[in-house]
């Protein structure tokens, strides 16, 4: 009995290892993913409706900007996280993305600062 157990164990292990080697998932897992994709798709549609609906409220520019960007970041985040499966992605990919985002943020902040400065809005002088 113990022998057959051992064989089963070994088989299971090798299967797992095969699944890992491909860095992919079993059929059951994929089906679970598919359900997630459908759910995300629904959420994105709802959020699109929300974005448009909020715009008809004609909020002042600053709150409108904040709401619109929050929703956009949330939607973009959902696509990146699930469709691009960043959830569970390897650290290497995150390192690229963090580096890039840091530079983009620097670019935005410095561009806006430079523009305000050009318009005579000067802090600390």
């Amino acid at each position: 009995m113990s022998e057959s157990h051992a064989v089963e164990d070994a088989l299971q292990h090798s299967e797992e290892r095969f699944a890992e080697q491909g860095a992919e998932h079993s059929a059951e897992e994929v089906r679970k993913h598919v359900r997630t994709y459908l759910f995300i798709f629904g959420t994105l549609l709802v959020l699109t409706v929300v974005t448009v609906a909020v715009s008809y409220l004609h909020l002042p520019i600053v709150p409108a900007l904040i709401v619109a960007l929050l929703i956009a970041f949330f939607k973009g985040g959902l696509v990146a996280r699930h469709f691009m499966h960043l959830v569970g992605e390897k650290p290497l990919i995150f390192q690229f993305l963090i580096l890039t985002v840091v530079f983009v943020v620097f670019m935005f902040i410095l561009f806006i600062w430079a523009l305000l400065d050009q318009q005579g809005v000067r802090y600390g002088t």
């Binding site: 410095l110 600062w113 430079a114 400065d117 050009q118 000067r122 802090y123 600390g124 002088t125």
Partner: peptide
Amino acid sequence: AHHMFITGMGTAL
């Protein structure tokens, strides 16, 4: 922006 000092930049920037 150290290439742009003469574009009329304020002191903080």
